[in-house]
Design a binder for these strands. Structure first.
Length: 889
DNA sequence: GGCCCGTCGTAC
DNA sequence: GACGTACGACGGGCCT
């Protein structure tokens, strides 16, 4: 039995993929959507249909023979977008690497090549599947030829063509000639569409016949049009007719799918950033374990020590019983001073009875030998997520990891801040290293401390793989950082910050559990009262927390006018409810209920659960590799969004208290974003205002309202403040209008006035967007980057989003750079000081310290100075200091 | 019951 | 659709 032959209309697919898949890029910001779409389609085809013969045809570049027939052919088509043209070579390479036969011939289009193949294979007995969505190719459909559109999964055979066009595929050409095709700028006969064309061709059989027998036709508008556009009809037919004598193989063997070249595919997928496809060709090699050693006796430990003494770097990974560093006990340590040799020291492996297994050195003995190296200020330490190992070693062994630190997780983040996974095995897979997974080594054991029960041999291999992978990763990442000029950012900011964050996490912050309990009780009572009242007004109980159910009650049962709609129903957010409050008493109660429920579940109850039993404090995680701008984030719990506004917010803050004998010291940057904006934009008015020490909101208010600062009302200041904030976020008149509850026109007037006053800011916003378009990324003052591939998107919403990010990121990111620098300076200051002062929190523009009451006065000014001088800008940085016994200040 | 997404709300 | 960056609670649809 002869095989089916699949013929792909390559060029059509490239276009479709390009438009169907919005903005996809590799890590360098190169568009990859068309390649990805094409690759996915081919992959699916191969998987589902398992073709033996598969070929792809491409349009040739430049004019084709149809242009000689008609110089307006495809004239209305815009030129191929740059973002697509750049992908063509990769698609060609992909086709080659996949082992597909491909055709391209000067002066003809993909359709013609497919037609030629169909023609040449006519006598082969093979069935042919044309893979396309292009109706022109339906001309080729016949008894052994079908067309399949993998996007819609529709198959067109003779019956389907008849069904759709009321004629056989063989005469479809005549139909299309009459209909024309606006997308290819083929004229056809005006006034004739698919229906009429089908009828005419059915009746007359061909264009020639139609025109010969035109006299038989009753006079009508259509007849008139046919007469007038006779030439156009015949021209259209010539354009639509497929050329079927191109040079293509006439034997099925010439279409046979070859073996994929995995090496080539890997290079390509890696370059394109197609991690999922990469996994499928995955021929990543497992790591050779020849160089792995277990350290189970004194002699091995001494050998290791001898190597450490000569080492110029040290890779390290700790295995523990818990991800929570305060609970973590060491199970083992792996080390490497350079590949291929890696060492694993088992310390806390246990049998199922919980007894330590034999053949493990005593932790103290190991510590004594290793400590000088771990704490050496000269020996660089490399790890993946070193903050964790740093905290574990400090907590479990009282060892402070020192020396230049190198964290491959952070290095990967800096080079690719938008990356979703920074897991070691995912990063290693991209450099062809296959690692044993944690699940594999623990055999799916779900216990927190599962690793302690892993047999020592297996654990050793797993752990050694980790340090091995980390070292290999650094080899790859170091040059990338260098290329992007990020080595200083990495070595001088991010890395020294690691131990500081570790210390802040370890320090934690004290909360008063009794206060939380009291608050919880009070809030629960209030909530119950609101709930009852809301049910009474609704006439029945429902889930107030469900926006869906709430929408039904408000807008259907109570008949209140609904505002904007969301994807899932009516919007019930605070803005909508606020407007409704004038008409009904329920909306205000809902706002109140939501406020209480939010504070209770997100803060009060959650904080209570997270009080560490050992320390009685709350220990957040400060994440250094999450945000796209370079800010830190905080989680478990998020201590960067503890409420501050409103009376209830203050009550929650009161539960965070300074340790007995200490006081909180708060240091916050005044208007850091706007100062950075002044520096970036060099706007003269903004620079001058900050240099004079003006209150910037008052200054702005005075200018946009054209009044003396003495006559500024609170309302004027509020407007000015909104604009000042909005500017940093790239806000539109719509957004400002919404926030200030004024008309768009009024909002636009304010914005115009603002830009009259600060024209340099407007210029900056324009320039930074242009820069993003040119480079594909924007940078902060310290060279942090954010790639913005969507800045060139054709989708307006996506493009505008990228434009706002281009404006905001240098500002927000530079502010993040500054406070990180300040944290390093302050840390240095505190290390040289006797007495207790610990940095506890960073909240983007604010640092919170816990200081001995006796030290507070002396430290305050030093800390202020560190922060104000962290990075000299063209305007002064100003830091406000406050003290208090709780976070309520 | 776990996972994912949408909505909403808190911070800067 | 419309104001940038986060984290997280909750509801609800989906899958197992």
């Amino acid at each position: 039995m002869s095989e089916d032959i699949y013929l792909i209309d390559g060029s059509a697919f490239i276009y479709r993929a390009f438009h169907a898949i919005s903005a996809l890029t590799n890590r360098d910001g190169m568009p990859t959507n068309a390649v990805f779409g094409f690759a996915s389609m081919v992959r699916r085809l191969i998987k589902e249909r398992q073709p033996v013969c598969l070929a792809v045809a491409f349009d040739s570049r430049g004019p084709v023979f149809r242009h000689q027939l008609y110089d307006e052919y495809k004239a209305t088509r815009p030129e191929m977008p740059e973002a697509l043209a750049g992908q063509i070579p990769y698609i060609k390479e992909l086709v080659k690497a996949l082992g597909l036969v491909s055709f391209e011939e000067q002066g003809v289009e993909a359709d013609d090549l497919i037609a030629s193949a169909v023609n040449r294979l006519a006598d082969s007995g093979s069935r042919i599947v044309i893979v396309s969505g292009d109706k022109d190719l339906l001309q080729l459909v016949g008894d052994r030829v079908t067309m399949w559109d993998p996007m819609s999964d529709k198959v067109m055979d003779r019956a389907a063509v008849r069904d759709k066009y009321h004629v056989d595929p063989e005469v479809l050409l005549h139909c299309f000639a009459l209909i024309g095709d606006s997308s290819d700028n083929i004229p056809g006969v005006p006034g004739i569409g698919p229906k009429t064309a089908g009828k005419l061709v059915k009746q007359y059989g061909s264009l020639e016949q139609l025109y010969e027998r035109l006299d038989e036709m009753k006079s009508s508008k259509m007849k008139q049009s046919l007469i007038e556009h006779r030439d156009a009809a015949f021209l259209s037919r010539d354009l639509i007719r497929l050329k079927s004598d191109c040079v293509v193989p006439d034997e099925p063997a010439g279409y046979r799918l070859g073996e994929p070249d995995n090496g080539r595919l890997k290079v390509l997928y890696t370059k394109l950033g197609f991690t999922n496809l990469l996994k499928e060709v995955d021929n990543a090699a497992p790591i050779a374990t020849d160089g792995f050693r277990l350290v189970r006796d004194r002699q091995s430990l001494d050998e290791l020590a001898a190597i450490l003494a000569e080492a110029s770097l040290l890779a390290i990974d700790t295995e523990t019983t818990s991800l929570n560093t305060r609970r973590a006990e060491l199970v083992g340590i792996s080390l490497s001073c350079g590949l291929p040799q890696c060492w694993y020291i088992p310390l806390g492996h246990r049998d199922e009875a919980g007894e330590l297994v034999a053949g493990q050195l005593l932790p103290n003995e190991v510590r004594e030998v290793l400590e000088p190296y771990l704490t050496s200020a000269e020996l660089p330490k490399i790890g993946h997520n070193l903050k964790y190992d740093y905290a574990v070693l400090a907590q479990a062994s009282d060892v402070s990891l020192a020396g230049p630190l190198i964290d491959t997780m952070i290095a990967a983040y800096l080079t690719e801040p938008a990356r979703r996974s920074l897991k070691l095995d995912d990063l290693c897979r991209e450099i062809d290293i296959k690692m044993t997974s944690y699940e594999q080594v623990t055999g799916g054991d779900k216990r927190d401390d599962a690793f302690a029960y892993v047999p020592v041999e297996a654990a050793g291999t797993y752990s050694c793989e980790d340090v091995h992978g980390t070292l290999a990763l650094w080899e790859r990442l170091q040059p990338r950082l260098a290329e992007k000029d990020m080595l200083r950012l990495f070595h001088e900011i991010e890395m020294p910050l690691v131990p500081i964050l570790a210390h802040m996490e370890v320090a934690g912050i004290k909360v008063d559990p009794q206060r939380l309990d009291d608050l919880a009780e009070e809030f629960r009572e209030k909530l119950a009262a609101r709930e009852e009242e809301i049910y009474r007004l609704a006439g029945h109980p429902f889930n107030i927390s469900s926006p869906q159910q709430l929408g039904v009650v408000l807008f259907e049962e109570l008949g209140l006018p609904h505002g904007r709609k969301t994807k899932t129903g009516y919007s019930t957010d605070a803005g909508v409810l606020e407007k409704l409050a004038q008409q009904h008493e329920m909306p205000a109660l809902i706002v109140d209920y939501r406020n209480l429920a939010k504070l209770l579940s997100t803060y009060i109850e959650k904080l209570k659960l997270l009080i560490d039993e050992k320390t009685g404090r709350i220990h957040t995680s400060f994440n250094q590799t999450v945000t796209t701008t370079g800010r830190l984030s905080s989680s478990n719990p998020n201590l960067q969004n503890i409420p501050i506004r409103g009376e209830e917010g203050g009550r929650i803050r009161e539960a965070f208290v300074a340790e007995t004998g200490t006081v909180f010291l708060f240091a916050d940057y005044s208007q850091i974003d706007l100062r950075v904006l002044a520096h970036y934009s060099q706007d003269q008015a903004l620079l001058a205002a900050f240099r004079r020490g003006d209150d910037i909101h008052n200054r702005t208010a005075a200018e946009i309202f054209g009044v003396s600062p003495l006559f500024i009302t609170p309302d004027m200041r509020r407007v000015a403040k909104s604009i000042n904030f909005g500017i940093v976020y790239g806000m539109s008149s719509f957004g400002l209008a919404n926030q200030l509850r004024i008309s768009r026109t009024e909002a636009q007037k304010f914005i115009d006035r603002y830009f009259d006053l600060y024209s340099g800011v407007q210029q900056f916003m324009h320039d930074i967007v242009e820069q993003a378009k040119r480079d594909g990324y924007v940078s902060t003052l310290l060279n942090r980057r954010r790639y913005l591939p969507e800045i060139k998107a054709s989708d307006k919403a996506r493009r505008e989003f990228a434009e706002r990010a281009a404006i905001n990121t240098p500002i927000q990111g530079t502010a993040a750079d500054i406070i990180k620098l300040a944290m390093l300076r302050v840390d240095e200051l505190l290390q040289g000081r006797p007495g207790r002062c610990r940095m506890l929190l960073q909240i983007h523009d604010e640092l919170v310290f816990e200081v001995d009451e006796t030290q507070c006065g002396a430290l305050q000014e030093d800390i202020r100075r560190c922060m104000e001088q962290a990075l000299p800008l063209d305007v002064p940085l100003v830091v406000n200091m406050q003290q208090g016994h709780s976070l309520a200040k």
